[in-house]
Write a protein that binds this DNA or RNA. Structure first.
Lengths: 219, 219
DNA sequence: ACCTGAACACCGTTCAAGT
DNA sequence: ACCTGAACACCGTTCAAGT
């Protein structure tokens, strides 16, 4: 109940700043999880924090900067624990599944994440270090390990989009005449679109890991 | 030199319309290839066509509609010829490479393409039909064939982003202390970032197709 | 039916002015 | 150093008015 405790005060300063990069990130996550990316604007972010929009620019350089903070915070929660206890192929599988789970709810970050220089994202860098170390320890040469990371990431991002697609994405509709066999094949898949997307992802991921295992073993 | 020939005239009409969906699509492609997606606005599109911005809305319902037309026109040029002459695995490889080549120059369309109901894109539907038919003829059950398409597409989209990334994407910069092994492994890769991206993609694609071939054979 | 010009409701970003 | 309020340069989209 003592207001002094809610925010640490520094000597000689009239008051602590209202805003911080951490606070902005937290507010951004709150908006995104409750209202979605469409409602994440610099104005809504400022309103959530009780300041004017221009105040944000004392702490972040742009909206892209906000998205970057958001993304690095998110990457912290991707599961890399498998690399400490499991064989590399099983660890890779667990990592990929967790990675995709995260980005299914944040597809708007994919165009940023996919081309982001890692130097700007410390948590992402930490994640890459863990994966690289585990793959190298398993006998995979470093450059190949990076290729594996790049390849699995590509699949993960694309599959995250697919899982976030509308349920009728493969329904040919009134143009069914253009694709009779595809139409039948798609209709014969899973009843639930999300379940179908999950199955296709796991099928592809397991096939890829199979292929990687063979290449690593025979080289 | 006869102005009547430049545009077919219909009887009883005062004049033919200036705009058409095809013409808008062509103009959009022209802008995108010369100046990039950043310069593709409804205003720039109208200027390119010599009309007012609001005139466009007599032919397209939104900018998203324009992006859709663009994307369907693009998918026409993806190489599916392999499916008529090569074994399914080699054909799939050629298709994936051509698919990625196309979207490397059009990453802005990926978020639309990846979640687009196929009913809105006839050329895309035709492409899917060709792939499905070839895979089914090779003995792969229809639903599995769709899973293969979905999986390869996911890899293609993610890899297209990767190839369009800046050259320094894997340079840890001043945070190299956070990821020493990853930093070394990344530096030991190809000198040219694009060449490295190509190599990683082919490595992953070939591993995936290896894995798919085994699964299809053993099931 | 199709086009124009003006207006609308937003965006992200900047900057002088305050404390 | 950090915040406010006003302004700026855009967006995509709508709509009454013209032919």
């Amino acid at each position: 109940m003592s207001p002094e405790q809610t925010r640490p005060r520094r000597r000689g300063r009239p008051s602590s700043p209202v805003l911080s990069r951490e606070g902005i990130t937290t507010a951004a996550i709150r908006i995104v999880s409750t209202r979605g990316y469409r409602d994440l604007t610099m104005a809504s972010l400022a309103r959530e924090l009780g300041v004017s929009t221009s105040a944000l620019y004392n702490h972040v350089s742009s909206k892209r900067d906000v998205m970057l903070l958001l993304q690095d915070r998110l990457n912290e929660q991707i599961d890399t624990t498998g690399f400490q206890s499991l064989p590399w192929d099983q660890a890779l599988r667990r990592w990929a599944i967790s990675y995709r789970d995260c980005y299914i709810r944040h597809t708007e970050l994919i165009p940023i994440m996919a081309v982001l220089p890692v130097a700007d994202a410390p948590q992402t860098l930490v994640m890459y270090e863990r994966v690289t170390a585990a793959l190298e320890d398993a006998g995979i040469p470093g450059p190949d390990a990076v290729d594996v990371i790049v390849g699995v990431e590509a699949l993960v991002f694309g599959a995250a989009y697919d899982a976030s697609a509308p349920a009728d994405i493969f329904d040919p509709g009134r143009r069914a005449d253009l694709a009779p066999r595809f139409g039948r094949a798609a209709a014969a898949r899973d009843e639930d679109a999300r379940a179908a997307a999950d199955r296709a992802f796991l099928f592809t991921l397991d096939s890829l890991i199979d292929g990687l295992r063979r290449r690593v073993a025979t080289e």
